[in-house]
Structures are given as structure tokens and as C-alpha cells.
Amino acid sequence: MTHGMHELFDQYVDRLISGEETAVCVVHDLDLSEVLGPLLETSTLVVQQLGAVEPSPEFRQASRTWVRSLFFSRLARKESRPGFLFMWWQRRWVTAMATVLVVCLAGMGLLAASVDSLPNGFFYPMKTATEQARVMLAVSDLDRAQLQLQFAECRLDEMTTMASRGDSDTVVLLAGEVTQLVAQMCTGALFESLDIDSEIAGVLAAHSAADSEMSLEEALSTDRAGALQLLQCALDSAPPELRPTIERLMAALSRDFDASISLLESSA
């Protein structure tokens, strides 16, 4: 009965939203009008009040022009990108170069030297280049996701270390790196069935807005919330082998962001 009432009420709300009058709706169901009538009265009021809100004509026009120009500028940028064959060739070339880089660096012992380097260190660019090469050369989608999570955890460690040195600028950059790595993992083939395009767009938008408009603590909290939100989505559909790594990173995220914020506050 309750379910039927919800269903019937929903049908009336549909009609109200589409502009039909309440009285017309209720008259068809006289027995129910005693129950539904008052609710439809309230619904009519809500539809009338909220439905009357409209953007100003100036804003509507300005926004239309702005979105149109944004659309065409993005389209132009997309069309100016190299074609598929070039990209295919480039991808093979990059993969080959990455392999050579890893092999050469490993042979020279520089790879080991770069492992513990920090963002302000001489070997740090080598470390991140090697990480990118390892992600690219991963043999399976699962391995690739594992590596991205592992490198995100490395960024967290580095972030805490830099926070202990009072380097807030680098801390913010590293927090952004963590978010980027998590977003990259979520857009990987392993999570193709996961419908979180809008979450990723929202998280990355919040991150890009964070730098200019927020205090340090707010910016870090935004990155933490965004990364945790994406990881929570990924956790639900991740293969069982990947779940412990995701859970470990989620725990590390909460811990290391808190630690970094308090370290920076104490050094300020």
C-alpha cells in the first residue's frame, strides 16, 4: 500500500513538474485525495517557487557565447594533435626509450642512488622518470595499478619529509602528485567498467582550484578528500589482489596528510 502510494504520488509529481494543475490530478483519485491532496498542495507550492528561478537573460547569453568559444577552442586543440599512426609510432618509441633508460640507469648504479632522493635532490628527476618508465612497461593492468599506488605512497612519504623541513610549496605539489596518480589509476583499463568520470573531473577541478584560492590546510584537505573519494570508488570494484594496496594507501593518506599539516603548522 505504502509502495503504491509512493508510486502514485510520484506520477502526480511528474505531472506537476510538467505543468499540470494539482486539482486536475487529484480529481481522478477521489478516494486518495484526502491523503495525497495536502501533499500535492505542498508539492505545487515547491514547484511554483523553485521553478520560478531562472538565470538572467544577460548571464544566459554571456554563458552561451563563452561555452561555445570554449567548445571550439578545445575542438581546435584536439584536431591539431598528431594522428593515430604518429601516436602509435611515438608510443613505441617512448616505450623503447624508457626501456633503454631503465637498463642504462640500472647498469650505472644511478637507479639505486635515486631511489631515496627527495624532490629537491639531484637524482629526483631520474627517480620520477624511472617510475614513469616502470608504469609504462608494466606487463599487466594489475601491475600498472599496483605501481601507481606504490608511487603515490612514495609521494606521501616525501610529502611528510618535506613538511618536516617546512617546505610548504613542495608539500602542495606532492599532494597534487598523489591525486594525479590516483586519478591515473582510476582511468586505467582495470577500472574501465567503473563509472567515475564525473568524480575524477570534480576532483581534478578541485585540485586545480586549490592552488590559488585556498589556505595551505584547505588545499591539502581538498587533495586528501579527492584522493580518498576516488580510492573509495576504486576499492569497491578493484580485483581482490589490489584491495590491500588500496586500503594501505587510504590509511597512509589520512595519516600522512594529518602529519604534514601539523608539521607545517608547527614550523610556521
Partner: peptide
């Protein structure tokens, strides 16, 4: 989208800014 943001935020300027940001995100994604 504008109406949703306006009734949630109760501020015309904020609703306008966010409406544009929403469609910029839509274009991005």
C-alpha cells in the same frame, strides 16, 4: 543546472560562477 545551484546556494553570483564551472568540467570530461 543554474536553478539547482541557485536554490542550493541562495546566491546569484555564486550560482552563475558554478554553472559556468560545471559546463567547463563537462567540456573537459
Amino acid at each position: 543546472v543554474y536553478r539547482y545551484l541557485y536554490v542550493r546556494l541562495g546566491n546569484q553570483a555564486e550560482a552563475e560562477d558554478l554553472t559556468q564551472e560545471v559546463f567547463a568540467n563537462v567540456l573537459e570530461a
